[in-house]
Design a protein around this nucleic acid. Sequence first.
RNA 1: GGGCGAGUAGCUUAGUGGCUAAAGCACCUGCCUUACAAGCAGGCUACCGGGGGUUCGAGUCCCUCCUUGCCCACCA
Length: 926
Amino acid sequence: MPPAFEPHAIEKHWYSTWNAAGYFQPSPRENSASGKPFVITIPPPNVTGVLHLGHALQHSIHDCLLRYHRMKGETTLCVPGTDHASIATEVKVLDLLQAMQGKSRRDLSREEFLQHAWEWKNKYGGTIIGQLKALGCSYDWTRERFTMDKGYSRAVLTVFKEWYDKGLIYRGYRLVNWSPGAQSTVSDLEIEFREVQGKLWHLKYPVVGTDEFITVATTRPETMLGDTAVAVHPDDERYKHLHGKNVLLPLMNREIPIITDAYVDASFGSGAVKITPAHDPNDYEMGQRHGLEMITVIGFDARMSEAAGEYSGQTREEARKAIVRDLQAQGLVEKIDDYTHSVGHCSRTGTIIEPLLSEQWFVRMKELARPVADAIKMNRVHYRPERFANTSLDWMENIRDWCISRQLWWGHRIPVYYGPDGEMKVSVEPITEEGWHQDEDVLDTWFSSALWPFAVLGWPDKMETEYYPTSVLITGRDILNLWVSRMILTSLYFVDDEIPFHDVLVHPTVQDVFGLRMSKSLGTGIDPMGLIEVYGADATRFGLLQLVTGAQDVRFTDEAERALGEDTVRRYLREKKPLPLEWNGKPAERYPQMQNARNFANKIWNAARFVLTNAENIGAVEPFNIETAELDMAGTWILERLSVTISTVTTALNDYQFDTAASTLYSFIWNDFCDWFVEVSKPRLRAADHAQIALLTHVLEVTMRLLHPFMPFISEEIWQRLPKSAAADSLCIAQWPAPAHAYGLMTDASAEAFAAQQRLFGTLDEADSRLGFTLVQETVSRVRNLRAEAKLPPSQKLKVTLVALSNEAAEVLREGVPYLLQLGNLEAVDVVTADAPRPQNAVSTALPEVEVFLPLEGLIDVERETARLQKELESLNKDLAIVEKKLSNPQFVDKAPPAVVEKEQAKRTELQSSIDKLSIRLREMA
RNA sequence: GGGCGAGUAGCUUAGUGGCUAAAGCACCUGCCUUACAAGCAGGCUACCGGGGGUUCGAGUCCCUCCUUGCCCACCA
């Protein structure tokens, strides 16, 4: 074994071995307690995508859970796949064609484009899948799906037809969100509102038949060409005399009415609003209420339409300038204020959304959404953390119809066919008859992803119902409504009122070191493949899982970014310029959180190397057997620690507390096993102690099983080198440990075995655990501390006197003498009872159970020792004061639970005892 | 505008009303002690964002303010 852990070869080897052995496919298992399969479908990443840090975090969670449940003996399945991502892919492929062949959408037919798109998909669509494999994901790749594969498409078209037949899908001429960049509609959820520094123009419209003007305020003067009314609040006294009158729309010289509507806020601006029903959602609704004419003055190309008269053909921006200029020339601009407001942008292309009237397909959402709300309220779907249930409930309360048609080519083409005589048919099978043609539009990507959990299991044909509903959906909170709510909706409707998953686990969003959103193009995005390259897949997974707390956001530290400083980074992001990141340090030091995880992997590797090397040297190792083993205090202690670790990690995983699980493993392996148990084992191993190497091997073996879901590669590599006690060819399918396994009771945590464990360790569990190896550990620490404070070289052998303050403590310390000698680097330990005289010329300290004296050769530095004792005393007195304050409060003694009061009293006794001892020492010093 | 989070050591974070607020990184001191210098031993560092309240007892619960992140929303 090499002295440093080298992850890459191991990762490659084990991944292909596991995959070939079929461990990632579901198989009937015998040991599951519940008998239920554990099923996940991954959120299908965009086929255009490459893995980003959010994915890496999400899939670390996925795979950790999968491997955990697989080891628990459950039939385990994870269906992977990719999403065709209609707009994103189309934009990407078009960009590519432009760059490589100089062709734009206009130069291509639908068929030509689709051919390019499929070629592109087949060539590059597997990138992200390969990256998931590099991370170690144990998904069933034989079931990999694509949202546009044949069966999936059938599911999509079937849903469309079914809803159409039930009247839940309809075609309508409505105001929709038009993205000029994508040349398509987008849904409400795909609009990103951004704060924009704009202006508020106050325009004066002359009232017909008077010499008055009415002033309207607007952020978009160019839309005034399409105004068909001016609205005021019915109770607004300022305008009552104008009710029923008309204004003459400037520039267009069109008479439009002054109407009244309670929607108008009399306190905003002038209290009068220009109404452009064809280009504003509110105005549209008002236009419908009042039967106003709707005049489209901006076209699909985001230029002024013919209805815009002399401005026709100008862009929105040009027209705005020209119109303001022309109005100003006529003295019709009252004033222009600076105004910050939010403007909807297309989340895909970044262009400003133009509300436009057009013929589109819609899903009637209201009645479909109601059962979803019910299911959530009745706790049939469980959100973790729970508060996220509200995100869905709020959305459904004010739900609006869903525009599902997109003017794109890449996607599921709407299965509506138009006949020669104006007939219309909806059909899952293509209609090829002469004279019929299909609707040109495709469906919103999210329409198809909404069917994911059941479509991938075979619906609408033969569905594998034994895997449904799935166990847990793991997602970021940004797509809770876009995707999660809609999956619940379709499942309740199409799969027999069944929910798609029991739990929705919302994981934190990864931010950069300053708490800012990560953006790959600007340089704050971190490439997980780079992390795997530098730190290894195990460390990357572990480091990320340590970040998975219940919080909303977690920060990913990048020292290169930190070096720039927060102000600089913010400025660059605001200006949308790539960060001038450079890193001259060691590659591993750039991301400290990952470096820590990598160091941990190396620590594990070396602990294993130590155990395995010794096992080899010592020769044939008998398996550890609790019945015949003669455990001393350290052996008992490590098994107890292991047992507690098993329970804690198991509970944490059941509760999705990945940070707790990871740090529990970390501290058990590093602090308990390596720092103490491996250390105390060394002298015994030098003496070729078979029992000790058996115990070490045993603890390591169980620990590797616990570690596997977090760090699958290194745990497998080590486990395979260990003498196998569990009947499995791979850790993937080895049994997940129960507390009884810590004690070598490998027959499963049956009642009998567990009872045996309780018999053997009952005394320990109930007794004050300090009176065991823990006391030895604390005593060692005090000795080391005294040695360092006295500036004695670590190599110098010392004598120590321990004054045990009870018989029990004396007994424990006497048993622990060999450990004290070794770990404290001592040549002699003298354990005496409380009535013995204290050594002279020594530095000392006091624990509740024992006084520690370190006699010094020659004279001690009285001044230094006095200062040290005073400091120690001060800290103890401070603690005592707190306890005293509590206990002297009659209210506390009266009202607090007796157990709490007793605890405080015991604490007071202990503190007082230590203080007395130190005070005596201090007086002797003087 | 509404809602949901976060603010704990220089940094990243644990902390479930009750042991003396925990860990890693960074920093300081000393060690290559034959598993690991990606290491070992020891140490320093916290008015737990400010203020008020509830309670015998608050980092933890309530109110309020400040800072900050996210989601939702049709105020021109």
